[in-house]
Simulated scan of single mutants.
Amino acid sequence: MARVSNCLPPIVGAHTRVLILGSLPGEASLKAQQYYAHPRNAFWPLVGGLIGHDLVARPYAERLEVLAGAGVGLWDVVASAWRPGSLDGAIREAETADLLRLISDLPRLRAVAFNGGTAARIGRRALEGAAAPALIDLPSSSPAYTLPFAEKQVRWAVLRRWLVADATS
């Protein structure tokens, strides 16, 4: 049965340089109230590899601390929607998150990365015409997107360019 799903609060700070936007948390994430809680989602190994930390082995609160220290923020492009299950293709009546407001509050933001095609489609539309930073489409970290992990790693590696702190950040 379809029900209303709501996004989790944004995880951002004054030092956020890269904002990674998913579509809408799946059932495992909503139940745990944690981003990317499904054990087969590749998000934590992908981002951990980019920033040089084993995030999978850490408790969730520590994962978020390490992300903040690396300048990585998280949120979703959909604030709420009707959706049975966890697949993006089942999202109906989506209300878009206020991405413009969020990015305007992040003075060091250099890139917005979309985790998957649905996030990219909705997020790019929401940011259209804005003075947004670089917009990057990434393959989904979801286990439903069957691109091999090694290929996801290669394609997510583009984020390294914005994760390296410079003297002005």
Rank of each mutant, 00 (worst) to 15 (best):
A68Y: 04
G22H: 01
A2S: 13
S142F: 02
I51A: 02
R17P: 14
R125D: 14
A28N: 12
Q34W: 05
L19R: 09
G22E: 04
E27F: 06
T16Y: 11
F149Y: 15
L163H: 11
R160W: 02
I51T: 02
L74M: 03
A165I: 00
P25T: 01
V112Y: 04
S140H: 05
L135K: 07
L19H: 08
L159G: 12
L19T: 11
P59S: 01
A42H: 11
A70S: 13
A167M: 13
P25G: 05
T16E: 08
L163P: 12
G85S: 08
M1P: 12
T146Q: 15
S104W: 07
F114T: 04
D76R: 00
A126S: 08
R121I: 05
V12P: 12
T118F: 10
E27D: 15
V18T: 12
S104P: 05
P143H: 09
L46C: 08
A37Y: 03
S23A: 15
A90G: 10
V47P: 00
A130D: 11
P39V: 07
S80E: 15
Y60H: 06
A132P: 11
W82R: 14
L100W: 03
F43L: 04
R92H: 06
G129A: 10
A134K: 14
V4N: 05
R124N: 14
L99G: 04
S23Q: 12
G26P: 07
A150P: 10
A126V: 00
S142I: 00
W156I: 03
A81V: 09
L159S: 11
A32E: 09
G71N: 02
A28V: 12
L24A: 06
V47N: 01
R40M: 04
A81H: 07
E151V: 12
L99A: 01
Y35C: 00
W162F: 15
I11P: 08
E128G: 00
L147G: 04
G89C: 00
R3H: 12
A81S: 13
A126I: 03
D88L: 00
V47K: 02
A90I: 05
A61S: 15
Y36H: 13
D54Q: 07
L100C: 07
L109H: 02
D137W: 08
Y35H: 08
L163T: 11
S5D: 08
A2R: 14
S104K: 10
L135R: 03
R17T: 10
L102R: 06
R63F: 00
A131R: 14
V164S: 03
A134G: 03
A14S: 14
L8Y: 09
A79W: 05
G117Q: 09
D98A: 14
P139Q: 10
R110N: 05
I122H: 10
Y60V: 00
R121P: 04
R108I: 09
L159R: 05
G22A: 02
P45C: 01
E65I: 03
A150F: 13
R101F: 15
L74N: 05
L50S: 01
Y60K: 09
I136H: 02
L102M: 09
R160Q: 12
G89T: 06
W156G: 04
R17N: 12
S5G: 11
D98G: 10
R161G: 00
L109T: 05
P107S: 12
L24S: 11
W75D: 11
G26V: 03
P84V: 00
R121Y: 09
A120L: 03
A131F: 07
D105S: 15
L87A: 15
